[in-house]
Design a protein around this nucleic acid. Structure first.
Lengths: 146, 146
DNA sequence: GGCATATAGTTAGTTATGCAACTAATTTCA
DNA sequence: TGAAATTAGTTGCATAACTAACTATATGCC
């Protein structure tokens, strides 16, 4: 059924379009209005370090779904802002452990509150079952493609 | 309930994370393997022009959810590749109408087929109701934030 | 008519992404 | 043990994104 096919193709712009763009812009705007100078991409790296500090760059690649050059440069910029530092691993000299500074630890509460507020705004009128479905579909899509 | 709050914050990475990245990378890869040199962002512009040719740059901003500088440079690159050309509007000299070349018209069928195939791969095991829910949630999120 | 305002598009600077090619350290295994 | 393959990270190049500031044209209104 070609008509169904066509609609499936259009789904690309659903998954990768207006909503994700709008959420990203709003979260970045909310950070800026709170006086935070970090980008949402930098924040996503910090987010994983708050859960577990001193991860290797490769581990950050895995957890943030970015490639190695992207992480290299995000860490470069976070290091310039004194939010993280690279610490050489003692057991494997190829590895940099990326560790949070005290300044970065202080950002955790505020930024996560802002992210929660942003998502609460975004999800007004969306119920738990629908959210659960979106999460399941996205996990399925990811699994299908990797 | 703070626990629920926290989970909502995590949803940012659902909407803007692994799945959308994976779909974008796969579609770009499928274009490349078919010998197509266009980016998915350029394709998204062409997509709207195939539906309606000779739109203004502002109208392309609205339909692709991009800002004006982004469209300016996408059109610059599409023009370099001879896929579109800027045509001055006769009724309003501020406006550039962006019109498809014959070469661009020939890309329509193949690229849309590739997009459909990519989304079929991505959506294996996802049923129509779930797809409908995702579309509704994303529309709602967009409306909530704009 | 003419000045203020709004709209269309461009340019400059910073950050981020993808890919390919590279260095350095580690592991594998014949 | 030592050469080949793997893994961790970096660098260079191209494209794309956002912000802010800019030019040019059009519109509104006194």
């Amino acid at each position: 059924m070609p008509n169904n096919q066509f609609k499936r193709g259009e789904l690309y712009s659903v998954i990768n379009g207006m909503a994700s763009t709008a959420v990203a812009r709003r979260l970045q705007k909310n950070f800026r209005q709170a006086g935070l100078e970090i980008t949402i991409e930098q924040w996503s790296v910090l987010y994983h370090l708050w859960k577990e500090d001193c991860l290797s760059q490769q581990e950050l690649c895995n957890r943030t779904f970015r490639d190695k050059p992207s992480i290299t440069r995000l860490i470069d910029n976070l290091e310039k802002q004194k939010l993280v530092r690279r610490v050489a691993s003692k057991s494997d000299r190829r590895i940099n452990l990326v560790c949070l500074s005290d300044a970065a630890k202080e950002l955790q509460e505020l930024t996560i509150t802002l992210a929660n507020q942003t998502m609460n705004e975004a999800l007004i009128g969306v119920n738990k079952e629908e959210i659960e479905t979106v999460k399941q579909v996205f996990q399925r899509v990811y699994d299908n493609l990797t």
